[in-house]
Design a protein around this nucleic acid. Structure first.
Lengths: 225, 225
DNA sequence: ACGGCCCTTGACGCGATCTTGACGTGCCGG
DNA sequence: CCGGCACGTCAAGATCGCGTCAAGGGCCGT
């Protein structure tokens, strides 16, 4: 059973969606503004978020950005606007899908299913993780740093993926080595030092004083968005 | 990766087909009666349906009719009867292919591949894709580069189509191989390198420095218009 | 039967990427 | 103050994957 969070300030739409989703056996949470939404996501960890861009307190894209700093939950964006700029921006920030109003309930349900399935595929399918300074799109293997497209090598991606699976949490050297280089690589080696270095040079604003890729001496690394 | 729905009331046949299809890297769903089948199609949107006409609850042709009211998914009909009446009727109702029992698994697999490919062709009806430098008319199978009409071979078209179905997105080598050469071609081969090369020579302004057909080393290709 | 087109396959070179070892630096405890 | 430890940095050699080419074979139309 999946839990869906609906973020919209229109009570009628909230009700419509709630009924439709519950009819399809989803558990539904609702929020009417961005702050509440962020709080609910932190506390209830829904499986999918449906987010209207037109919110009373915060700009929708800002909400999305903050969600992505904390979580990789699939987000489906709703918008009344048809401008593709919004669409591109939303997808760049890590929305998983984009639906313009008005939309059919069936269509939305299909997208919820698709989003849930993708995230259910867990394991290897991370979405997008963004900060002010860079955007990491794991599905597409694209990285933007300070607005510029950046190339990362396959191994660099695998290291990042492992770290970003639990943003902000410590990942031990053993876990990293095993997950990237295979189960045989249990013990210390140069690998992590070399690749941490590479990644910092490519991603950090100031590679000398890392803000995102943090070393935990003797233990491992931590990636904080 | 394609998803196949097998609709048959004979558990043995269900099992046989599931094993054979899964061995060829399809995801398999099953249904034992018409109602379930319709529901699964609505909810899971399989890529191909294999439908036995002899079902317990509804007449097979009736099931097919209802499928066609809701979806364009390719349907391959199975039938124990040899009467061509059934065949004609099924094809009239929108079946994509017709196989009489008993049949060889290889034959069925070939037809599944063909159906999948066709639906790839028409399913998302690619129209025309144009840039300053070239125009690709998928419907008409015509290409213009720098004002000149250019010939592309069938395989070149299929590769391009697969890439252009999601312009700008990464398409993995596996997806490409499976979609163009069939599900059996999961592993690496020269195909992609050769055809990427051909396409670049024919389409790129400067084939040495590709701007549209981009390689993602170790992963696949990306077509950016 | 012949010729042409297209698909397939193997070989080869090159550049990017990975691996490995050596050395530098800062921290800590003895 | 010294030594050890852990991490950061660098560069050179090995390796891998891709682009490229061309030969061979099947299929189709003439």
């Amino acid at each position: 059973m999946s839990t869906i969070l609906v973020v919209d300030d229109d009570p009628r739409l909230q009700r419509t969606l709630s009924i439709a989703l519950r009819a399809h056996s989803y558990a539904v949470l609702t929020a009417s503004d961005g702050r509440t939404a962020l709080q609910v996501i932190a506390e209830e960890t829904p499986d999918v978020v449906i987010l209207d861009l037109g919110l009373p307190d915060l700009d929708g894209t800002e909400v999305l950005r903050r969600i992505r700093q904390a979580s990789l939950v699939p987000v489906i964006v709703l918008s009344a606007r048809h401008e593709s700029d919004d669409k591109v921006e939303a997808l760049d920030l890590g929305a998983d899908d984009y639906v313009t109003k008005p939309f059919g309930v069936e269509e939305l349900l299909a997208r919820v299913r698709a989003a849930g399935r993708r995230s259910g595929d867990i394991g290897k399918a991370l979405g997008v993780l963004a900060t002010e300074h860079f955007v990491l799109d794991f599905a597409e293997r694209r990285a933007k740093v300070a607005g510029e497209d950046i190339r990362l090598t396959p191994t660099e991606w695998r290291v990042l993926e492992t770290l970003c699976r639990e943003p902000g949490h410590l990942v031990t050297q053993q876990d990293l080595l095993r997950s990237v280089w295979g189960p045989a690589y249990g013990r210390e080696s140069n690998y992590l030092r070399v690749y941490a270095n590479q990644l910092r040079r490519k991603l950090e604003p100031d590679p000398a004083t890392p803000r995102h890729l943090i070393t935990e001496p003797g233990l491992g690394y931590r990636f904080v968005p």
